[in-house]
Design a protein around this nucleic acid. Structure first.
Lengths: 310, 310
DNA sequence: ATTATAATGCTCATATTAAGCATAATTAAT
DNA sequence: ATTAATTATGCTTAATATGAGCATTATAAT
C-alpha cells in the first residue's frame, strides 16, 4: 500500500499574519490588499514551520512570535505555471507590532475591511439586517426543492441569527462560505460566477479571503483557551488595553468588571507595580504576562461529566 | 512575491480511521499493526478530501462518514525513493462499523495497545506510577542546566500529573512527545536513538504512532463540542451504550446520572419508542440521533465575559 | 423469593457566569 | 476651584451549570 506513483506538486505557503494597532486587528497584505503573503517551500528548510518563519522574517525583518498551521488544500482550479499541481499550506502568525515597511508594498489592513459584518463591537452591524439577511432570504426562497429551502433557512439562522442577537463570533468561515454560495460575495479563481452587486467588503485574489476567514476563526476560538493574545500585546499594558485587544479580535464588546475578574482568577498576569497615567481617567495599574505560566496547563475544558477517580 | 522556483514534492495521504467495536476504540492498521493506511494524492482528484475518501473507500468498501484534516508536515528525515521530498497530509475518519476484510491484511486494533497509559476507564493505569513517572523523573534529574531541569519537571507535571488525578485526556500528543524526548518510546525513522527498554505499547513505523496520537487527541477534544460520536454509533442505541462509547474515546469513566442529564439537556437524541431488553437489568429506552440538528449550532462555548447587545 | 444489574428520578452543595451598583482617582473643560 | 467626563476597581445578587450521590424501579438469573 505504498504510494504507487504520486504525481509531483509544488508547495505554496500562505500566511495570515496578525498584529494589533490602535485596538484594530491588522493583517499583512500585498498588492494593494489583494493578496496574503506567500512563499515557496524550499528544500533547504527542515520543516514547514521553519520555512514559514524564514521567509516571513526575511520579508518583514521581525521575529514571528507564534505560528500555527491552519489548513492544507489543493484546489484543482489553481494550477502552477509549469502545469504542476499546487498544494497550499496556510499558517497563522502573530506578531507584536507593526513590521517595518519593506521595499515592496506590504501593508497592514484592518481585517474588518474584508468582513464588515464580523465587527459587532459597536453593536449589530446594520449591514446584516439591512442587506445581508434580506438577500440571503431571497436566496433560500429561490430554492425549488423544499428540503433545500429548509436547509438553507437553517444555515442562515445558525450563522447570522436574527442579526441582533445569538451571534457566534467563531463562525467566520461558515458565514463567508454561506455568502459565497448565495452569490453575495465574489471570489476570484472560482468557477466564473457573475455577482451582480457584491456586499461591501474587499475581495482578495485566489482564495485568500477564505484563508483569512479561516485564520480569524481560528484565532477567535483560540483566545478563549490559550493565552495567545499576549503575543500581540506590548510588554506591559493595562487591563483595559488587554480588554480592547480581545474585543478587537473577537469582534464583540466585553463586560469590563467580569473581564477583570476572569483575568485575575486565571493568574495569567501580574502587576508591574507601575501605573499608567495616559488614560484620561483614573490611572490604571500596569500588568505583564507571566511568561513562566506553562502554556499547556491542564486547561480543564471538561464538558464531560467525569467521575472522581474513586 | 510569487514562489520563484519551488522544488517538487510528492504528497502522501495518511488516515487515522476510527471505529468502535464492543466498546473499544479501534483504528485501522496495515502490516501487522505497524502502519496506518496511506495512499498517494493522485492528479484526478479534485480535492484532497475526495482523494482520501476515494482510496479509503476503495480499500475498505465502506462509506466514510466523517472526515477531517489533521495535520500536514514535511519531515526532512523521510525521503521518497525518487529522492523527492515527501509531504504527509493526515486525516481523521470516523466509520460506523467494522469494515469488511480486504484481500490484504488491514486489521482493526485497539488504540490503547499503542498508548496503554491513555486508558483511565478503570482508574489510573499502574504503569504510570510504577514505571513512567519514575523514569521521567530520572530523565528530568539528569538535566545539567537548572532551567532545563525545572522545565522538564513542569512538563512532566502538566502532562502526567501525579499519576492519580488531574488527568487531561486531550494531551495525548504532548505526552507521546514527552515520552519520546525522554527516550522511553521508540520511533522509527527518527535519528537513530537507542531506547534500552521501551515502555509497553506497540510502536509503528515512520511517524505513524505520532499521527495516531494526533488523531486521538483531536477526537477527544471534538466529542466535547460536536456530536461526532454518533458517526460511530449504530442507528439506535441506549444511553449506556452511548456513555460507553464516549468513555472508550475519552479513556475515562463518566458519571452516569449526570451524563444522562447532559444528554437530554442538549436535545441531541430522541426516543425511538422502543425498548432494549438485551441489557441484563432494567430494560433501557432506545434512542436515535436527531440528524436534523444543525451540527454547527451556536455551540456557545463562550468563556468570554460578553455584554448583552444592549 | 432473592440477588444482581441496569435504568431513572431527584436532591443538595458548590462553582461559574451574567449583570449591574457603587466608589475612587484622574484629566479636561468651565 | 468646580464640575463634568472618563476610567479603574470593589462588591453584590441572581441565575445556571456542574459534581456527587441517594433512592426507587424494572428486568434476568439463581
Amino acid at each position: 500500500m505504498k504510494p504507487p506513483s504520486a504525481s509531483a506538486v509544488t508547495i505554496e505557503l500562505n500566511a495570515v499574519l496578525v498584529a494589533l494597532t490602535a485596538n484594530e486587528p491588522q493583517v499583512l497584505t500585498l498588492d494593494d490588499g489583494a493578496l496574503l503573503p506567500s512563499g515557496p517551500f524550499e528544500s533547504e528548510h527542515p520543516t514547514l514551520q521553519t520555512g514559514v518563519r524564514a521567509w516571513v522574517e526575511r520579508q518583514t525583518h521581525h521575529p514571528l512570535g507564534y505560528v500555527e498551521q491552519l489548513y492544507t488544500f489543493a484546489d484543482r482550479n489553481r494550477a502552477h505555471e509549469h502545469g504542476r499541481r499546487v498544494v497550499s499550506i496556510s499558517y497563522l502568525g502573530l506578531t507584536r507590532e507593526r513590521l517595518s515597511r519593506g521595499a515592496r508594498d506590504p501593508e497592514w489592513r484592518n481585517w474588518y475591511r474584508y468582513f464588515p459584518w464580523e465587527d459587532w463591537r459597536r453593536g449589530p452591524p446594520p449591514l446584516i439586517v439591512g442587506e445581508i439577511l434580506p438577500r440571503l432570504r431571497k436566496w433560500s426562497d429561490a430554492a425549488g426543492d423544499m428540503a433545500v429551502k429548509r436547509e438553507r433557512r437553517q444555515r442562515i439562522d445558525v450563522n447570522f441569527g436574527d442579526g441582533k442577537e445569538q451571534w457566534n463570533e467563531e463562525l467566520v468561515l461558515q458565514r463567508y462560505e454561506l455568502l459565497y454560495e448565495a452569490g453575495l460575495v465574489l471570489e476570484a479563481g472560482a468557477p466564473a460566477r457573475p455577482v451582480p452587486s457584491p456586499l461591501p467588503g474587499m475581495p482578495m485574489r485566489h482564495d485568500h479571503r477564505r484563508i483569512l476567514a479561516t485564520g480569524i476563526a481560528r484565532l477567535r476560538a483560540k483566545i478563549k483557551y490559550r493565552p495567545v493574545v499576549f503575543e500581540l500585546m506590548p510588554e506591559t499594558f493595562t487591563l483595559l488595553q488587554l480588554q480592547r485587544a480581545i474585543e478587537a479580535l473577537a469582534g464583540r464588546p466585553l463586560h469590563k468588571q467580569n473581564f477583570r475578574r476572569l483575568i485575575d482568577q486565571q493568574g495569567l498576569v501580574e502587576e508591574t507595580g507601575e501605573i499608567s497615567s495616559q488614560t484620561g481617567g483614573r490611572p490604571a495599574k500596569l500588568y505583564r504576562f507571566r511568561r513562566e505560566i506553562v502554556l499547556e496547563r491542564a486547561v480543564g475544558g471538561s464538558k464531560l461529566p467525569l467521575t472522581r477517580p474513586t
